[in-house]
Design a protein around this nucleic acid. Structure first.
Lengths: 197, 197
DNA sequence: TTTTGTTGATTGACCAGTCAATGAAAAATA
DNA sequence: TATTTTTCATTGACTGGTCAATCAACAAAA
């Protein structure tokens, strides 16, 4: 049965299993056995491929980041105006791929874990910085620098806030209305800036 | 040494210790011994007064909620116009008492734990609902109901988002600029609504 | 002497991480 | 081609440690 070249497959399966386990439990304290079981292997194998548990967790976080990054790049490429870039960033964060219970739980759990683990904190900072710069790539063309910087922070905070609030309500999946809330904010603010004095 | 009437003192001390332990660790997995040690008692005593660990955690969460509630009521009483009520709510959430690393870490950790514990989830819902209704108590006088509802959600999300983002940056305590961000949003939106067509 | 406060010691469960052993493909060798 | 050897994949069983929870016992008021 065993064949060569299993490693990448197993790694992927273990990371998938980690995300779904975290998503289901709603927190990071899932056991290696639980994760391994979901991936259809023994816990020893999980340790074989990832070493310690935090390495698996870091790999999982990196995967989440990579997925979001990929989606973001795709959406930004499809945008042709600065205004569209802003909408693209917002849309990605509330897209079907990202705004799932599983994913949201995982992000939230990692946020907490990042308070303990410097490695995870560094990864989360990457996320925050990237979100910020993606937003700025649109905002800077539409308003003065200072205004754009503050606006980016506000939008980012609102997105994160909607994520975490989403985690509280179970059974109410309305990514569209969440995105609309942010869009409305952007729209209002843009009108104010362009109409100014 | 032992005197009568220790119970309320111990309970308070243990809850205080729980908050500071969580704040320092940055997550909920602090041991009963750790908490008890900080409170200057044995872990057995903590169990004696609180029973199981989750009861202590729930009591801690309730304390956090109560503190925020008390502050909110105070601030709202001091506000005389609807517009001031909105600012009061924002100010409380970023006040020195609430916007501390310790408190923020605790809130964040509880957010995650609430995914597992229905009791904690219920408590967090209380918080969310109260924040919402406090905001609405000002907003409803200034704009149409539908608009006010959406606005309340947006403000609440932004506040929560700024909280969680604050947890990421260490050593950068700027509650004032965070509050200013929210205030600016409110101001902009209000101008739009009142100037409208 | 009963109640209240308090603890050290212990238990039982759980879990991350290790290791030695097994089986099966691939590569090397005859 | 037939064989041996090496490498890869995989696991069950075990270990050491941690921690929540319990309990029996002790001390000091009331």
């Amino acid at each position: 049965m065993p064949k060569v070249g299993m490693e990448p497959l197993r790694r992927r399966a273990l990371i998938d299993a980690t995300i779904s386990a975290i998503g289901e439990r709603g927190s990071l304290d899932v056991t290696m056995s639980e994760i391994a079981g979901r991936a259809g292997v023994s816990s020893a194998l999980a340790h074989h491929y990832f070493g310690a548990k935090d390495e698996l967790l870091q790999a999982t976080m990196r995967r989440l980041l990579a997925d979001l990054g990929r989606d973001s790049i795709g959406a930004l490429c499809r945008a042709s105006t600065p205004r569209e870039r802003i909408s693209a960033v917002i849309a990605v964060n509330f897209s079907a791929g990202q705004f799932r219970e599983e994913t949201i739980h995982a992000w939230l759990a990692f946020y907490v874990e990042a308070q303990k683990s410097t490695a995870l904190r560094r990864l989360l900072r990457v996320y925050a910085r990237r979100l910020n710069s993606n937003l700025l790539s649109g905002l800077l063309a539409l308003m003065p620098r200072g205004e754009a910087l503050r606006m980016a922070e506000a939008i980012a905070a609102m997105i994160d806030g909607l994520y975490i609030r989403r985690a509280l309500k179970d059974g109410l999946p309305n990514p569209a209305s969440a995105a609309a809330l942010v869009e409305d904010f952007v729209e209002t603010k843009l009108r104010q800036v362009t109409t100014a004095r």
